[in-house]
């Protein structure tokens, strides 16, 4: 029978041996896959980029509705990169830069900012169609992409909206239908980072997801006195 000390020693060396074995096995396996980077030696950020863009993990060659491919969707622009890095909590300097860039991105219609058809706007606000890829890609030739507004906002009392964003119920009654309000709403839909840097809200105008006409219709749904949002 081994003394307690010897026993401990034996366990320790056995543990050491198994560590060596594990590491040995690990190196050997990796040596077999020549050319493949060593995941364990990469930073989490570098490995994430590699996994997304270089490892065959996504169908990157699928054509995207806006042109280009799914790969373009997965490559981050400056805003996406920065907001991801700070997990949507930019410091004052970063926030200032984001706001400035967002303001510069906004293109306005000529003349006054128009309101369109609130009925069409209601359908667009309710709809979740457009830009989906993967196993069930949206065919934009069958219908126009919609706004996804109800996913995150309460609007008309007739329909249950989400609450990831603030409630917009009665928005036109509260804010009025002035040029200043229309301008603010237009900018919020176009690129909300102009007011809320690293907001969750998508850039429906700046990313070209909604046409000018669609934005005008959705704005009418929000602001027109006859819209169910304002009843």
């Amino acid at each position: 029978m081994m003394s307690r000390k010897t026993n401990r020693c034996a366990t320790a060396s056995a543990a050491l041996a198994s560590i060596v074995l594990i590491l040995g096995g690990y190196t050997a396996t990796h040596a077999e896959e020549a050319g493949k980077p060593d995941y364990a030696k990469m930073s989490p950020e570098a490995l994430a980029e590699h996994l997304i863009l270089e490892s065959g993990s996504f169908d990157l060659d699928q054509p995207a509705q806006e042109g280009g491919t799914a790969r373009d969707r997965m490559i981050q622009d400056n805003l996406q990169k920065l907001c991801s890095k700070v997990r949507n909590k930019p410091n004052a300097e970063q926030a200032g830069q984001i706001i400035a860039a967002a303001r510069a991105s906004i293109q306005y219609p000529e003349g006054e900012i128009p309101l369109g058809d609130w009925k069409k706007g209601g359908d667009l606000a309710w709809g979740g169609f457009g830009y989906r890829l993967a196993h069930n890609p949206d065919d934009h030739s069958t219908r126009d992409p919609s706004g996804n507004c109800y996913n995150c906002h309460a609007l008309s009392p007739q329909r249950t909206g989400g609450d990831l964003g603030p409630s917009l119920r009665g928005y036109g009654i509260i804010r009025g239908n002035t040029e200043a309000t229309r301008r603010f709403v237009y900018e919020m839909i176009y690129n909300p980072h102009a007011y809320f840097p690293c907001t969750h809200m998508p850039r429906m105008g700046a990313k070209g997801l909604l046409s000018q006409e669609a934005i005008a219709d959705i704005m009418a749904y929000l602001l027109h006195p006859e819209s169910p949002v304002n009843q």
Partner: peptide, 28 residues
């Protein structure tokens, strides 16, 4: 195993990584 930790940590980055048309990540 070092690979288990590496994959978990890269998974965290991916979870918070905003991309695509709607600027979404899992965090959204």
């Amino acid at each position: 195993h070092p690979l288990e930790k590496a994959m978990r940590d890269a998974g965290e980055v991916i979870f918070y990584r905003r991309a695509g048309s709607l600027d979404m990540s899992c965090q959204t």
